[in-house]
Write a protein that binds this DNA or RNA. Structure first.
Lengths: 199, 199
DNA sequence: ACAGCCATGTAACTTGTTACATGATTTT
DNA sequence: AAAATCATGTAACAAGTTACATGGCTGT
């Protein structure tokens, strides 16, 4: 939802045209995750469909401006005043992967763990190598360094978790958390008319 | 991709039927993010479409088993041996939101920040209140505590970042990073035949 | 003239997710 | 008999993402 909501929040400052919105989004997020232009127009159409924006004037340059609606402004206010709540839907891809890998018999967890640690460490070092905060960079530099810090903190946490996991695995016989497929499952099954279609 | 890939990796251990797959996924991720059953069948059909699984036998209970294909096994091996790489697509919703909020004039960033900090702290405390690792819980308990640790580390990192951000904002005049809409943009515009349709 | 950027759009597609229909079996 | 659970599916949708088509303008 962050792209959609961010574009809406930018439009709450005043009418913009599509390409301009991309520019505004990019500089406000330090050009960290540049947006494909096409996505702007898709998102605008979806926001229009939902009654949050409407098509506005075309200026002397041919720029097609978009305006926020009252419902849109209300939505922006709601977004800004309520925190992002990490619900169940926020599956961490690395965590899920390693949990599945760790519980599957015959999988070399420590190899997967090591590969992930290497990658995460390289990622962290690459981030740390980028230019740190510099007050002379102005607001755009501030935005960039916010994003940078966020990614660094997240990468550090991921590394810490990976090391923590490695320690726990080292203290256990490494096969002890493998889970066989539960084949004894169908106690309360679903005997059906078409049972034994093949058997 | 984690659901899709996880189901495929489980199928690499042997044929399963749909409901069984949900059970296997849930116990391997500590029932942290229970899966809607329907998603299993959707995902299986998509994997079948991609040639990674195929429909297998129906047993005497009427269970419709699914089998992994050679291409599927290859894909699992690739997945397990290569790390998750956090590409540009990994937008952190909280970071994007606060960066946009911080760069929009007239937005009370510190209020949004405070609201987020409260929510994140409550989230962390809720996580810490859950049962910690207990070796007597077996492999399923281990999986659950892996997920729990992962979420705790991530929540701590988010809190640290929020506090770091609050400190930086406090040291600055809080309006200094607001970015006006760049209205002087169209220097190299796109004058068109239909310019001034409205103007 | 030509490369490259500005600009608007369209179409297709991915993964994830939910709601619903259907029916059987098991438990109370 | 009713409620809960097991089980398979279908249909629709959300948000993100990319590739492509089209055309005008700018700088070399």
């Amino acid at each position: 939802m962050s792209v959609r909501q961010s574009l809406l929040a930018i439009l709450d400052q005043g009418p913009c045209y599509g390409y301009q919105l991309r520019h505004e989004f990019d500089r406000r997020t330090g050009s960290t995750w540049p947006l494909n232009v096409g996505q702007i127009y898709n998102t605008l159409e979806r926001l229009e469909r939902d009654g949050l924006v409407r098509r506005g004037d075309v200026d002397e340059h041919g720029h097609a401006y978009w305006q926020i609606t009252d419902a849109g402004s209300t939505e922006v206010a709601r977004w800004l005043s309520s925190p992002v709540v990490r619900t169940q839907a926020t599956r961490d891809e690395v965590a899920v992967k390693l949990a599945v890998a760790a519980t599957l018999p015959g999988v070399d967890v420590s190899a997967a763990l090591q590969a992930q640690r290497d990658a995460s460490l390289r990622q962290l070092q690459a981030l740390q190598k980028t230019a740190p905060a510099d007050d002379s960079d102005g607001a755009e530099g501030f935005a960039r360094s916010m994003m940078r810090d966020s990614m660094i903190f997240a990468a550090e946490a991921e590394l810490r978790w990976l090391d923590h996991l490695a320690n726990r695995l080292a203290r256990h016989p490494h096969h002890s958390m493998a889970l066989e497929l539960a084949t004894e499952r169908p106690k309360r099954g679903r005997p059906s008319a078409r049972a034994a279609v093949i058997a």
